[in-house]
Design a binder for these strands. Structure first.
Lengths: 227, 227
DNA sequence: GAGTAGTGTTACAGTTTTGTTAAATGTTTA
DNA sequence: TAAACATTTAACAAAACTGTAACACTACTC
């Protein structure tokens, strides 16, 4: 259920505060301090929701909004604007340029949280058919199924999560620590060798015929999904 | 674009003002001055959007909201609350009870209009299928009947709701929490194991012959309607 | 009022999944 | 090449998860 939220906010303290609180609520958080960077990161990461500060040093919020709403790949990501107090004009413009909601600074975090939840609740059914494909491997996040060469393979929960995470950025090498944090959870305390064992199990599970292993070991660094 | 907007507002002058302005914008407008009437009219007319005053003589806005959001037929109609100034608490409650947005009185009409447009733009045309068919399973939402291989099977209310929800997106895996929220209701407090028991009962009920179970268990995740 | 259907909870058994350990295997370095 | 280091794998016991029967309770029906 953990949704991914992208925060565009140039004021460091606010950004930190938002990140801290959102992560405490179990959201995955990415952020950027300027518009240009935000645009490319958003297209790369495809978050589930965007918190967008209206006043930015380079691009204005309205420009970002318009830009995002004209890009097929990201136009359905809901945007909540954060505006300075009393900028009536801006709110109207913002909503007209495609933002889904706005909040006036200063705002209470519970209120923001309620808005975010309301938004995600409404939007989530739209996010159907999340399928990720890499080579002959397909992960269907909605049905929670994995296919290799169009044949379904059965994975245990951990194996599924592990693969699901690895496939989001194929070829990228993740350390055991990163995998533990992302797949197992930060708090949990598990030997780092455990990752190895699960990697082995995952390898066996997705190894239809005696073809390539599909998971690369990078000595003294970690693993990546790759042939 | 003529959408149909329903206004629930007990203060006559405001209602008149809203109606006048909305109609000038080309919307079709219906309205009601009290909660009870509103509920039945909304279910009858199925508007595209609801403007809901938070302070009403009989039912409170929050009650209306909850009521509407638990009624399958109207729960997807977006609601914009109109709250008195500074009722922070109310906003949060409102959004949590299912409202999509709110506006604080006094508000400017352009702003309201922008909100309405943003909301309508976002909301997908709700497909209210009267009959949903998946494989040899048919759910008739109007008659509240379920057929398997054209033979009627009798389900209890909960089982019906459960199946009705599962069939809206076959193959999609729902967690026990999601099922509790959607089928039982958010506020209600029920053990999550209860879902298991009802799944078992539903399985037995729709299992005409000794064929496939039609409901898949996804260990550590939830259930999906699937063979 | 007794009888019935529908619900929610609990307990138990059976199964799957998981983390750990230790030995085996592989790779780099001096 | 040997020593040092890193990864793979099998085995096993513990933990987690699920299915279902049994039971209690409620709300209705006749």
């Amino acid at each position: 259920m953990s949704a991914h939220i992208f925060v565009v906010e140039d004021e460091k303290p606010i950004q930190t505060l938002l990140r801290y609180n959102l992560e405490k609520e179990g959201f995955k958080v990415s952020s950027s301090e300027n518009g240009e960077e935000a645009l490319s990161l958003i297209k790369e990461k495809k978050p589930d929701l965007i918190l967008l500060d209206w006043m930015l040093p380079d691009l204005s919020g309205i420009k970002i909004c318009q830009y995002l709403k004209h890009d097929k790949k990201v136009k359905d990501i809901p945007i909540i604007m954060l505006t300075a107090k009393g900028e009536e004009e801006d709110k109207v413009k913002g909503l007209e340029s495609g933002a889904e909601d706005y909040l006036t600074k200063p705002f209470s975090f519970p209120e923001l949280l309620a808005r975010i939840k309301a938004m995600l609740r409404r939007v989530k059914p739209t996010v159907v058919n999340e399928e990720i494909i890499y080579l002959d491997l397909k992960v269907d996040r909605v049905a929670m199924k994995v296919y290799r060469q169009n044949k379904e393979v059965s994975l245990g929960p951990k194996e599924f999560k592990l693969l699901d995470f690895l496939i989001t950025q194929p070829k990228r090498v993740y350390s055991r620590e990163q995998l533990l944090e992302q797949v197992w959870g930060e708090d949990i305390n598990v030997e780092s060798r455990t990752v190895d064992v699960h990697i082995t199990r995952l390898r066996q599970a997705i190894n239809i015929d005696g073809s390539k292993p599909l998971i690369r070991t990078v000595r003294s660094a970690g693993y990546s999904l790759e042939n």
